[in-house]
Design a protein around this nucleic acid. Structure first.
Lengths: 153, 153
DNA sequence: GAGATTTACCCACTATTACCCATAAATTAG
DNA sequence: CTAATTTATGGGTAATAGTGGGTAAATCTC
């Protein structure tokens, strides 16, 4: 039994039928209870995020704790839910990602799939490159803040 | 039973199928729970770092404490996981290191494998030599700073 | 409801990877 | 010193991963 987590980076292209391969390693990391299904939705960055069905159910539980009276909570809950789609992969391990998600991520032909332990990110290569040059840059202060955060939990 | 830590330096070459030998001493130092598996990823220097599966799982636990809502946390988690790959060595004790990692380390044919107690570094011989002549040089101030650091923990 | 379009399911091909066996050098044991 | 074992290296073969495409069912359009 290897790890049941998502790690590593893979590059694929979308075929003429709009299908994208999911790395075999990620498919194998799916728990039995997720029944060959990932839930994809908009990422907070300009990308697509995919969760195992299990993980998504936990996210739903979290969202249910939010107050439907507070506009901010409603907005967050709506944003997280409205674009979420469960996708079952075919016998060759591919899924067809909805067009509106591809558009949100700026995906045209190629995708980079990144393992993030308990979630998966799907990026357009060009967009990813742009982010690498800007948003991803962390300075010493950022690192320190993260260090404090993990230490205190 | 020797120690369960990684020490010493070894030199190997990559074969025609892209496989590199892992020193027998290091394989034996792997705990049973790591199931003949190392996790390799990009080093902070121009090299490749390998952890025992056990050690990596501890790193993952830390990363899971981060919030996926905070951009800085996401960036940090992404950077730590995107190049990480678990590698199980074959019955002859070899692993196939992904091409993008070899590229990052500037490895072409030969590698130097260095034990770093709880982690392993994999270098291209030429790159290592270059680092030895520059970055590795420590002056009195550096030593003093290290002394303070260890004393305070 | 008939035709057109999309989706789901299946089969096929190729390159890569995983797994196995073999050999030579090095190390250890007696 | 010699035999036995372990280590490092090479290579063959079967299984898997990734990619492309065909066809029938389902959905949509008019």
């Amino acid at each position: 039994m290897g790890t049941k987590t998502f790690t590593g980076e893979f590059r694929y292209s979308i075929d003429s039928k709009g299908r994208v391969n999911i790395p075999a390693k990620f498919r194998k990391a799916l728990p039995e209870t997720s029944e060959d299904t990932f839930v994809v939705t908009r990422g907070l960055d300009e990308n697509i995020v995919a969760y195992s069905l299990d993980k998504w159910q936990k996210i739903e539980e979290e969202l249910l704790k939010l107050s439907s009276r507070l506009p901010g909570h409603r907005a967050y809950k709506r944003q997280a839910t409205r674009f979420a789609t469960p996708l079952k992969f075919d016998s060759q391990g591919r899924v067809a990602i909805p067009a509106n998600l591809l558009q949100h991520a700026g995906v045209e032909k190629d995708v980079v799939i990144i393992g993030m332990i308990d979630e998966i990110e799907i990026w357009d290569p060009e967009v990813l490159k742009r982010y690498e040059e800007t948003e991803f840059q962390l300075d010493a202060e950022d690192i320190e803040a993260i260090d404090d955060y993990t230490r205190s939990s």
